[in-house]
């Protein structure tokens, strides 16, 4: 049974909340909450997740629209990258003057 079917009918849908902590940084997933619609979700997120100056921007997306990779397939999905060390750009000789790489 899917999550939606098990969810009680009278309950508001679940939303995932992403907060950008300051300008220039990425939005990061911080948690989830219930809300009747997108606007309420943003306001609830403001009240629940930015009370202590955690953010300057909020994204919300209804949880049912998030698609995830299957944990049972993680072996074939991720392990092949383990021995491909040459994919890391660590084999270049950088001049000493170059600092922030």
């Amino acid at each position: 049974m899917s999550q939606q079917e098990t969810e009680h009918k009278s309950e508001w849908p679940l939303w995932e909340v992403f907060i950008r902590s300051k300008a220039g940084l990425d939005h990061k997933h911080v948690g989830s909450l219930h809300a009747a619609d997108a606007q309420m979700a943003i306001e609830n997120a403001r009240d629940v997740y930015t009370r202590r100056m955690e953010g300057v921007s909020i994204w919300v997306v209804e949880s049912k629209y998030l698609h995830t990779s299957d944990p049972d397939e993680s072996a074939s999905m991720y392990e092949p990258a383990n021995d491909k060390i040459y994919r890391h750009p660590t084999f270049y000789n950088l001049p000493d003057e170059l600092k922030h790489m």
Partner: peptide
């Protein structure tokens, strides 16, 4: 009525 609004009103 729900946790989120409880916090909203407390704020």
């Amino acid at each position: 009525p729900i946790l989120e609004q409880d916090i909203a009103l407390t704020n």
